[in-house]
Write a protein that binds this DNA or RNA. Structure first.
Lengths: 356, 356
DNA sequence: CCAGTGGATGTTTACGTAAACATTGCCTAG
DNA sequence: CTAGGCAATGTTTACGTAAACATCCACTGG
């Protein structure tokens, strides 16, 4: 390590020593300016694409930049401009496909706006962990934050944000306290139930997600409400845990319900398990039982039969999160509210008119 | 825009105007220092937990920090220290489970080392896009880069990194040109084949991944080599595209091969489809046909029957990427090489002794 | 009793950039 | 022909932090 410096050489100027101490520094504006024979301000103008520079001068500066391999120092930029051009994303693990797709869309959309994305993973969804993520945030180089997290975790956290840092929350329904972007869970569930009622089914069974999940709860509520409003009696709720395996177990039970001709499953994975159980029990889909899912994961088009489902536009959610947080930054807006992203019914082959 | 300034007011000092122009700035060290009645250097010492500060003074400074809601400005810090404490991750979309789990482990591990993670998504895996990501990187506030990408995409790219930025590549086999951390694909495939041979099967069929994938290629090569070394004749290769649907189609074909008693599938999704096809054709697993997968996705334990598979430790890959890149930064090492993360055979119920 | 020592704290400075202001020189209108 | 104006470029300064160096003071040992 020490051998690199060559400190034994006595004549080293302080400049040389500094360089040696921080070898990763590249060329600065001053270096480029000197080589190009202009002032550093002109280099800055070229670097930022500002007007007021002759074509000749610009070319000369660009040449010098290339020769020195100049890269603007983003720390100095951020310090000078007072902003980092970076968005922080707090998310509880990347375990669900929806979160990931949302994150991906956020990253892409942020890049389009010239923003980078910094990830703040929360390993365990405890209150402490979430609090920790938010306080670490204070020291982090971000201008705004997007939280992808169910609201009950956020609720528990003592959220204290650095001044001037805006927040948008995805996957939540706390529109009264935060700016929220979310899929229209209720609308999607309503469309699913209505689709089955329109096909002539007397009622619709529901295979719900776990109790802890607000998304599951909202879908279940909308299912119940829609049935009640249509004058039907909601059958007993069947609960899974989002997994295909839990859908399979639920399916074995539902296969034994003779008057069960239509099932709305709270996600596609559980629908997959359900399809398998019904198939094993000799209940044909869609001839005997219609099944509709939720999410429209890539595989659902390849299920047997291809699954009718409710498409969620995660990409749009991510995009709106970014736009929302950027506009809040510009306008300093503090007002809350929820932006709902509509779902779309995707008709495939797992639903049909009521038998008989 | 101009209306915000209130420029008509004549008496505004330049200081006031500056504040108004950048309202998001919080308290600085100077502010804390003034309130605490100490110098800003002392605040710096407290902020960084340096010794040489009386307990009294420290308490006073901390109180002042709390009162003003002081947060260190990370841009100024980065500028001063010459490093960002941030790792960049370049990845081609977050479409595969493996990449995501690796990314998650990277983020967690980086956080443990006091580093943040910035995401550089490459929307389309074209040469231009990859090049673009690498050049954007130059302006980005990162000290080092981890690339999660198959090597042929990286190969095509004209990779020019800013000086001093170290790189580690995951999911690749270019150990001669980069520092690589990867799952031991060949070892895993070999274990899978040997497991089936040990169970008495004459030979092992292989349902491979798509031709474009190096991971698929390495698994297929190891499959062939292991069979040949054991003196068996490799059956014709069957190719899928990683999807369950392609596994199902392949399964329908394999079900008609009477001497196919053992199949090594290049991933668990295809194994799922294969299981379904075999079930439909009345070929019992594992009684008639043994099936082994690769990856050990969470669902595979719930397949019917639970899938014997090769566990990939994505978390370990991510962790090693971070450690590797950090140690390269410390030591300025330029030497390349590949670190292999071992796989593990997970015995469940889809494999059994050869029938008859 | 005083020089010496070392811990606590203060002062100066530079990091690289870009805003604000200053200067130069050429072109045009009167 | 010259004042005025504008485009191109240069100079100064501050952003917030932390390293390096300077200072102060209390205590110790001879």
């Amino acid at each position: 390590m020490g051998t690199v410096n060559g400190e034994s050489e006595p004549g080293g100027t302080s400049r040389t020593r500094r360089r040696a101490a921080r070898p990763r520094q590249g060329a600065s504006m001053a270096d480029v300016a000197q080589l190009a024979g202009v002032s550093s301000q002109t280099v800055s103008r070229v670097s930022n694409g500002f007007p007021g520079v002759t074509e000749d001068t610009r070319a000369q500066v660009l040449a010098a930049m290339r020769e020195l391999g100049y890269r603007p120092n983003s720390a100095a930029r951020a310090l000078r401009r007072g902003e980092f051009r970076t968005l922080g994303v707090i998310t509880f693990s990347l375990s669900t496909m929806g979160n990931i797709r949302t994150l991906e869309a956020i990253a892409t959309s942020a890049a389009e706006h010239g923003y980078a994305v910094t990830l703040l993973p929360v390993a365990v969804p405890t209150q402490d962990e979430v609090n920790g993520a938010f306080s670490r945030l204070g020291e982090l180089a971000v201008d705004a934050v997007i939280v992808i997290m169910e609201i009950h975790l956020l609720d528990a956290a003592t959220v204290s944000l650095p001044p001037g840092v805006q927040v948008v929350v995805a996957d939540s329904d706390a529109g009264d306290r935060y700016t929220v972007v979310d899929t229209d869970q209720a609308g999607g569930a309503r469309d699913a139930v209505r689709h089955l009622l329109d096909l002539g089914h007397d009622t619709v069974w529901h295979l719900a997600g776990p109790e802890g999940s607000f998304a599951a709860q909202r879908r279940a509520n909308a299912w119940r409400t829609t049935l009640t409003e249509a004058g039907r009696t909601p059958p007993p709720l069947v609960r899974g845990d989002w997994s295909a395996e839990s859908g399979y177990r639920a399916g074995l039970r539902l296969a034994d319900e003779p008057d069960c001709t239509a099932v709305f499953t709270a996600n596609d994975q559980m629908a997959l398990g359900l399809l398998r159980a019904l198939h094993e029990r000799g209940r044909r889909v869609p001839d005997d039982v219609s099944v509709i899912g939720f999410d429209d994961i890539p595989e659902s088009a390849s299920f047997l039969p291809p699954l009718t489902t409710i498409h969620q536009d995660f990409a749009e959610v991510g995009r709106l999160c970014v736009e929302g947080v950027l506009s809040k930054m510009r306008e300093g807006g503090a007002e809350h509210g929820t932006t709902l992203v509509p779902t779309r019914l995707v008709r495939r082959e797992s639903t049909a008119r009521r038998p008989g």
